[in-house]
Design a protein around this nucleic acid. Sequence first.
DNA 1: GCCAACGTTGGC
DNA 2: GCCAACGTTGGC
Length: 156
Amino acid sequence: MNYWLMKSEPDAFSITDLKSRPKRSEHWDGVRNYQARNFMRAMKKGDLAFFYHSSCETPGVYGIIEVARAAYPDHTAWDPENRHYDPKSTPERPLWFMVDVRFKRELEKPVTLTAIKMQSSLKQMRLVQRGSRLSVMPVTAKEWNTILKLAEEKFP
DNA sequence: GCCAACGTTGGC
DNA sequence: GCCAACGTTGGC
């Protein structure tokens, strides 16, 4: 089992949005970065991921989601009306992929980016590496546990 | 809104 | 293959 972190702008799609979906699941479309795509293709059903809210007032980890379906072609790339349309991708030769994710739980207390940066044992986290902008990235088991522990602490 | 950092594009 | 120009991400 592997751990991941997936970013989304909560104005567009938040953990609460996912929670309120009919089956509490949704496809994670729109990834148009090769490295992020490759990470998604490495995901296995049952893997867990942090749901990270980006480009918002308080960026951070807000919840936990599960990979419900392994990577398959992202059909939004074929739709000229879609914001993430990419004519290089076709049904015959899909270039972009997505996974399905399912809501697991919200963190009672989100682990903010600030808190992550303050934690010296998380210095190596990809999320806080200089210039790291990937929307999908792996998380080590140690990092995963550290963040979960931070979420349970009463005071930051 | 600003800007650093990075990825992509396209001319040569 | 090089690299300048441009676009995007995302924190602040």
